[in-house]
Design a protein around this nucleic acid. Structure first.
Lengths: 340, 340
DNA sequence: ATGAAAGCGCTAACAT
DNA sequence: ATGTTAGCGCTTTCAT
């Protein structure tokens, strides 16, 4: 097994100093006016022996890790999994590596994870933030570490974020149901102060108010254990509730809701029209196919990574933070049609 | 902004040497017979000022990164996303961080990613291997870097792996269809030499042979772009094919197949019985619910991480490699029932 | 244009 | 039982 070579080995072999090698390797040859010929010799030899700089030594010296930290709510949730995949591709393309984790929307866990990321000297953060991490984020920002929020943001913090227009999304979805002739539209959401959920709730409320309809809201307390959330949704959806339509505020709730609807034998849409947030294979394949609010996943990922890479590379610390709000598309399918 | 403290700062402040601090911090106080009292003082002060060792310096010195590299086929595939999630939890619990990537089953990409992981001095590898990476893996093993394969393995390489009994799984699924009275059972799979797919094909073949039935196999060339794979499946499933049942060899193909079945308006199971590999919400919620081979995801993740952590911690390099083969469960649902 | 040398923060062999 | 010290491999300032 051949010993791993260091920069000094290659310098020795070529009878030059290691700083020259370092400069050449870091593309500062021209700046340092190193001869073409030397550059050539070095790059060729480096290539030949397959020398790779030791990333720890480099990081120790520079303080940069070339790593981006991604914190999603749950990597096994298809929405976040897709985002992660897209970000991953762009990240690696740009020479960064990624470390990621699932926060479970748990503040304490998230704080610990941020600490861990910080210990690892992550260069940039992409976070779908839970509540209560404002102080920690501020302390990151104070150290000029770029942070990009997505899916939601923390109003108290002025940093870049990429979100969708949640209020408008549920507003449109609700209006759609109203236009289809539904009158008793229920809304199932998680009880949470998270902005994206609050806004989704607001959109629903606004639409009903405009049409003088009564809101019927069920807030579910999130629980890792799905079966715990089963009963409240179950009782909310039971026929005696007089609902003729229901809107689920997340894909997770939508899927859970469909399971329950299946079990209760509720006919969709004749007995209950259904609209869910987040488009997703289950919704397309369900019978009847489920109307859903489709988030522009590629655009979200693109914006996130563009903003972050930009911040990472910009030598001039531009202080203005960007907030991108993308619009969604309501995928109208049979589950919300009165005609059926 | 307070300057980040180093071990020497804390040693100075306490008027002791940094090696004592180092030993105490690394739990070698007892071994070094450092006084209880000093240990107490140091830990207390470290706690107080929130000192965190610099991970790069540590890694540079020790050569260990405390990182596990996970390479899945595609993190946005629900099977891999779930595995990743479970591994993530266990990994962080044990003080490791994780870096991960999607290989797309692309040999070239995987080789590059392994190189990248190696540059980052990843301590252990968890890989769902594509073909053609034998040399690279061998070179990892030669350096005593632990590698655990899952989902499949490379026959030429003797290393730990956690897989399921693929042959038996499809064998059982096929027998189930035969017992239900289906005679013309099709099999849709990817054209690949990957072991898990080959074994799934074999299980199907074995079952048919036992019952003197004719095999009807469609091998799809994998393509990132789903629409390209659409036509071949489409034409295979068209009614004139005389199939009365079909078995899909992966969840990806199963979902794709259902989309096409929907479009063609094929009645399940009266016109075509359906069984898919991998259990998955879509299959449970489809009308009728789809019979599927359920992989024991928790057990898979548990075995992987247990084996890896064990290798990572065992000072005595135990050379014997473990191969774990787990069994699956056929979730029988209406899509494969002749009675309906 | 190139080289010498300091030092990033840590561990561990060695000395006391 | 505790302290001294030599690197780990790299970047970068300063000298030439």
């Amino acid at each position: 097994m051949k010993k791993k070579l260091s920069i000094v080995d290659i310098a020795k072999h070529l009878n030059i100093s290691k700083s020259s090698v370092s400069f050449i390797l870091n593309g500062r040859a021209q700046e340092k006016r190193i001869s073409e010929e030397l550059v050539e010799r070095v790059t060729k030899y480096v290539e030949e022996v397959g020398y790779k700089p030791n990333s720890f030594a480099k990081s120790l010296r520079t303080g940069k890790s070339n790593t981006i930290g991604l914190m999603v709510e749950d990597i096994s949730n298809p929405f976040f999994a897709k985002i992660a995949r897209l970000i991953e591709d762009r990240t690696y393309q740009n020479g960064y590596k990624m470390i990621y984790c699932s926060t479970d929307n748990n503040t304490q866990k998230t704080l610990e994870l941020i600490t861990m990321f910080r210990d690892r000297h992550v260069d940039g953060y992409i976070i779908a933030p839970p509540e209560g991490i404002e102080d920690e984020i501020n302390s990151l920002l104070k150290e000029d570490l770029p942070v990009v929020f997505f899916d939601r943001y923390l109003p108290a913090i002025d940093t870049d974020h990429v979100v969708i227009d949640n209020r408008l999304s549920t507003y449109n979805a609700t209006i759609h149901l109203i236009e289809q002739g539904f009158k008793n539209i229920g809304f199932v959401t998680f009880s949470s102060v998270q902005l994206q959920l609050q806004n989704r709730l607001q959109g629903y409320r606004d639409a009903l108010k405009e049409h003088n309809l009564k809101a019927s809201i069920k807030e579910i307390v999130f629980n890792q254990n799905e079966s715990v959330m089963y009963d409240p949704i179950h009782s909310f959806l039971k026929k005696q509730k007089n609902l003729d339509a229901v809107l689920f505020s997340t894909n997770h709730l939508g899927v859970l809701g469909l399971k329950i609807i299946n079990e209760l034998g509720i006919k969709v849409p004749s007995e209950l029209a259904v609209v869910s947030f987040d488009d997703y294979e289950v919704f397309q394949l369900y019978s009847p196919p489920i109307t859903a609010v489709a988030q522009p996943i590629e655009a979200i990922a693109d914006n996130i990574i563009t903003i972050l890479l930009n911040k990472l590379s910009s030598t001039s610390k531009q202080k203005t933070s960007q907030s991108v709000t993308l619009s969604t598309q309501l995928m109208v399918r049979k589950s919300s049609s009165k005609d059926l």
